[in-house]
């Protein structure tokens, strides 16, 4: 019961923050609200027994993502300009309709999902009990998540490293080595506007 109350409270806070992000027009406020969103979702992951995910979300989601967004804001807007988004020129009805229909269909789809926390759900069968029973004797690591990540699905993690490497190279190719020009162009942009 107490678990449900904690879950509902945190999820409601997250929903409020998500709607505040839609409404908010100051970009700095949007990024700060997003950092709060990530941090509360880390709390929700703790409430749902996913401690490792919560660590990563708090460090990477709330930390690094926020810093990257703030850096982008500093690079794309001049310091003295009020960093505010412009309202879109179109009416919101079409995107609203798309979102409502998609959301309605997804909620209709959840009626087939087993109830939250059901120990007999298909997701809890197959390979998960094997990991829980055997990982300590087979790998010697008490943390099952670490054992699966580094041992059973080690190649998956190698693929993840490849993705990060590729993204890093792409970022370097896109904006590396042109800092000076960037600064000149942003100041020019300010003079024009």
């Amino acid at each position: 019961m107490i678990d449900s109350i904690v879950n509902i409270t945190l999820l409601s806070l997250l929903a409020i923050l998500a709607f505040a992000i839609i409404r908010m027009r100051s970009l700095f406020a949007v990024i700060m609200l997003f950092a709060g969103f990530s941090f509360i979702s880390a709390g929700l992951f703790v409430a749902m027994d996913a401690a490792d995910v919560a660590f990563t979300e708090a460090a990477v989601g709330a930390g690094i993502s926020t810093i990257l967004m703030l850096a982008t804001l500093a690079l794309t807007y001049a310091p003295e300009v009020h960093k505010k988004e412009k309202l879109p020129g179109h009416k919101p009805w079409l995107p609203l309709a798309v979102v409502l229909i998609t959301g309605g269909m997804l909620i209709y789809g959840t009626s087939d999902i087993p109830a939250f926390g059901d120990p007999n759900a298909p997701a809890q069968q197959h390979v998960a009990p094997y990991y829980l029973e055997k990982s300590l004797s087979e790998t010697g690591v008490p943390n099952v998540v670490t054992a699966v990540l580094a041992s059973y699905r080690g190649f998956d993690t190698l693929g993840e490293v490849t993705v990060i490497f590729t993204a890093g190279i792409a970022v370097l190719l896109l904006i590396g080595g042109r800092r000076k020009k960037t600064k000149n162009e942003t100041t020019e942009g300010v003079n024009e506007t």
Partner: peptide, 15 residues
């Protein structure tokens, strides 16, 4: 009780 979690997650997703 069994699905409120999924519904709230979908609302956040749609936001």
């Amino acid at each position: 009780i069994g699905h409120y979690n999924y519904w709230l997650v979908i609302i956040i997703m749609m936001a």
